[in-house]
Design a protein around this nucleic acid. Structure first.
Ligand SMILES: NC(=O)c1ccc[n+]([C@@H]2O[C@H](COP(=O)([O-])OP(=O)(O)OC[C@H]3O[C@@H](n4cnc5c(N)ncnc54)[C@H](O)[C@@H]3O)[C@@H](O)[C@H]2O)c1
Ligand SMILES: NC(=O)c1ccc[n+]([C@@H]2O[C@H](COP(=O)([O-])OP(=O)(O)OC[C@H]3O[C@@H](n4cnc5c(N)ncnc54)[C@H](O)[C@@H]3O)[C@@H](O)[C@H]2O)c1
Lengths: 224, 224
DNA sequence: GCGAGATTGTGAACGGTTTCACAAATCACG
DNA sequence: CGTGATTTGTGAAACCGTTCACAATCTCGC
């Protein structure tokens, strides 16, 4: 366990392990081996052990891992051991699905405030919250102190909103808009793109890797 | 351009290039160099060229790439050159956001039918569609012939729905439920997990890689 | 037509992640 | 207490994707 940087895929899998562990805990299971984790997560036992090794030693040889113990450890690693407030910007379709999503709570993620710039929407209730003016976001987050933000506004407004989030003190942004965001180095962005996912599936769904060559290069005069 | 398998990251980026190209096309730009693509996509010029090289040669040395030409090529590669019908299962929050999403159209992705098992919902309008009984999914898809499906039902029902989708002839599944799905080898699954994304951000948002060791292993008698 | 300048396509080097394989640790049980 | 069965943690190897660097290709202007 040297002081290496943790691979992002490892962090992503940590969240999966956590889900498996929470399920097992619910089912009253006390101990799980890496082998059993593999069964439930689809991630290889060796991968699981290697992933954990970035953070320390959590299992007992010959036995496995204490379910409640490991839950606590992974939660601490991911900073999900205490409530994590989140700023949501964009009270539209996606925002609507998010505010009502109960599973966030299990991970102590809480949407603490919702913002929009539509005067018709501002002041309206939205889930348990009231939609606030995006102009007040910095002021409001001075109270809340959220480090995470979600962008659920149209693409043309996303960069502007990102800037406001950063200015309000956010250092992690989940972006639903189909744009690449320019942010300072200390801010992390993760993009969610259903279109991208569907495009990959679309490619695979038709299983013949036809080569599409000879069309563009020899397109003649129309191109360039 | 040997007969190598295309890396998944390459396919994901293809969708990003396509977006950039469509934007450029809209702006009336006729030609783009890999250098310029890098500007707009945040993906390195070398990466872009390497990605395309899996499929053929699409650019002209000294000039760049024909925007409309490359759009056509990438669309063909991703099978987005003709309309791609999709089956949506689960007429809830997520499903609701999806049916109303206009950007799908630009990629010729069309949600062709919506299914649910809630008798109260079946028969109701949902976007432009009418919610249908999940029991009829195979029958309905015999007409539609969709190869793509979206699962937007609670986790406990996801596997069951996946089985139905596969039986109905779907070979690509976009899964919003937090579960790993067991599917035949010829079926591709991509999971969308907001929680996972937020967990990764949560880790990075607090920038001190404290080591959480010595808690689980020496937990004493409580564990195992 | 030709030389200067620009840009592509790609083999090779590189770097990072996953897989492998095994020594060390723990437990069960006689 | 010792033996055998089990499972962890981790260095090393294998694998895969990204970056590099440059020959080949094309355009433009003279
Ligand atoms: N709906 C989907 O299924 C879906 C799928 C994939 C991606 N997306 C993306 O997610 C984003 C949101 O989608 P949606 O369907 O919820 O859109 P929406 O139009 O339903 O909601 C967008 C909201 O953002 C608000 N807004 C606009 N500009 C703003 C600004 N400058 N500051 C604050 N608020 C502002 C609008 O008032 C509106 O309430 C879009 O970028 C969309 O492309 C949506
Ligand atoms: N809402 C969110 O923000 C969010 C975020 C991340 C993940 N998810 C996941 O996405 C999925 C859908 O979430 P949601 O908020 O839309 O849920 P929802 O409860 O609003 O909708 C689920 C729908 O599925 C239907 N359904 C249930 N069992 C079914 C079955 N066997 N066959 C057909 N339909 C069935 C229900 O009748 C309901 O209409 C869930 O797995 C959820 O965990 C949701």
């Amino acid at each position: 366990m040297t002081e290496t940087r943790v691979p992002i895929p490892t962090l992503e899998r940590l969240a999966i392990y956590l889900r498996v562990l929470l399920d097992a805990h619910e089912a009253g299971i006390q101990t799980l081996s890496s082998q059993e984790i593999e069964q439930h997560s689809g991630i290889s036992a060796a991968q699981f052990r290697k992933d954990l090794s970035y953070f320390g030693e959590f299992g007992k040889p010959g036995v496995g891992y204490s379910v409640p113990g490991l839950i606590q450890c992974i939660e601490r690693i991911l900073r999900l051991d205490e409530e994590q407030p989140i700023l949501l910007v964009g009270a539209g379709n996606i925002g609507s699905a998010l505010v009502g999503y109960p599973n966030f709570q299990a991970h102590r993620l809480r949407i603490a405030a919702v913002f929009d710039n539509n005067f018709v929407k501002i002041g309206r209730p939205f889930g348990d919250l009231v939609i606030q003016d995006i102009a007040r976001i910095k002021e409001v987050n001075a109270e809340i102190g959220a480090r995470l933000g979600i962008i659920a506004v149209p693409a043309h407004a996303a960069q502007e909103v990102a800037d406001l989030l950063v200015e309000a003190g956010v250092t992690g942004i989940l972006n639903f808009a189909p744009t690449i965001l320019r942010v300072p180095k200390h801010v992390h962005v993760r993009n969610v793109s259903f279109l991208q996912e569907l495009a990959v599936l679309s490619y695979h769904a038709t299983e013949d890797a036809l080569c599409v060559n000879g069309q563009a290069t020899r397109g003649g005069k129309d191109g360039v």
